[in-house]
Design a protein around this nucleic acid. Sequence first.
DNA 1: AAATCGTACTTGTCTAGACAAGCACAGTCA
DNA 2: TGACTGTGCTTGTCTAGACAAGTACGATTT
Lengths: 239, 239
Amino acid sequence: MVTARQPNLAPYAKVKQYLKARLQKGRWPPGALMPSEAELVVQFGVSRMTVNRALKELQVEGLVERVQGLGTFAAQLHRVSSTLTIRDLHTEIESRGHTHHAEVHLARQEAATAALAEKLGLTKGAAVFHTLIVHHENNVPLQCEDRYVNPACAPDYLNVDFTKTTPTHYLLEVAPLWEAQYSIEAAAPTAREAKLLGIGRHDACLIIVRRTVSRNVPITVARLVHPGSRYLLEGQFKP
Amino acid sequence: MVTARQPNLAPYAKVKQYLKARLQKGRWPPGALMPSEAELVVQFGVSRMTVNRALKELQVEGLVERVQGLGTFAAQLHRVSSTLTIRDLHTEIESRGHTHHAEVHLARQEAATAALAEKLGLTKGAAVFHTLIVHHENNVPLQCEDRYVNPACAPDYLNVDFTKTTPTHYLLEVAPLWEAQYSIEAAAPTAREAKLLGIGRHDACLIIVRRTVSRNVPITVARLVHPGSRYLLEGQFKP
DNA sequence: AAATCGTACTTGTCTAGACAAGCACAGTCA
DNA sequence: TGACTGTGCTTGTCTAGACAAGTACGATTT
């Protein structure tokens, strides 16, 4: 037993660390049967609940697979999955130590088209709030935010000063987030977007379309257009 | 107590469901103090370990925050984060019920440039494997895969028939995945990529650059170029 | 007034044992 | 041969109690 690295580690954490280290060293190839809870109980001299916790956490992390009646198996790791976090742009820019400012190009009430009404759970022609805001990082346009909001969720939306707070931030305050769908694609901007972002009509853009729902009521649909040359989504995966 | 929806639900799951439902209804605004474990023990007539499990799982899901000595609080939900899974392209296409085939345009050994050697943990001029493969979905080019592989991790890489198995799949078999970094951006393809994908030189592409590491040894660096009009990354967030 | 201490409450973790449920496999019976 | 049954393994879940550790707050002392 060579697990005496961290003497003050909790017992469940010791078991977990031991298994994780051996998994990484390739002790159990993907799909191989790992020691049972009973064996680990004897090996570490702890109770079964403690071993169970270690294994359950490894299962949540995707490192092992457990089957009742069969045993615990080393996971295949046949996928690269990582947590993609879409944060509030203002926060993201500030955290880089840069300055953020927003230009509000449009903020008004409109009548919903059929397609939009569908997405926001309204009827065609119902009132919706529409804002068009360009966000700058160090005075360079970074994002064109074209957003429609369900007035029922945020009646005061149009009175907010969006040069001081972002729509994302305001909406999260007003309506706690309970569901979101997004899609990411590369495409050319519309003529208007190109002009607002100060880029060419045929420059590639990274476009995120996001729809959020709170308590089963659609809140907002947003189209976020970023100049491809200035925006990068990054991520990391580590078990 | 109105939690008798699922009579056969395990006790810990009942507690969890109860709290989740009330959180969603806004019973506790973000940051509010929620019932303590002791209170829930009395309310549900279960042991503390059972309540603890329910709360711990809600914590892992990001719905509550717990502070030792203070209590359990409703989480802020001030972030949209979801698991972005990058799967093997072959599997992804097949799961859509479409056919996949690959054209191998290049598969040879080369000498590493300085930049490449850096990324693969080799010295400049060392041997690297280089493949250039175009993947088709229903005979339409979907991805141009430009990949460099560390020969130490996969000595037989160049002998694999990549019309039958994808490099991603083969490498995951040979070297279990332990770390990956990726970036996603929108940009124009190179002239060669445009030709291989059958698109215009100025059409927007979604480009994923991925670097994977196994057991602290870099395995491969890949540049995956997708025509923007034919590829979409989608995701969902739901607590 | 400021620093210290004690107390009550919280979550974090562990134990030893229990029963249920799922799976594989050997043995039995028709 | 084929269907059934028992047995021994596994994980899934629960219990009642215990001690540790962190926080807030009031009471006491300096």
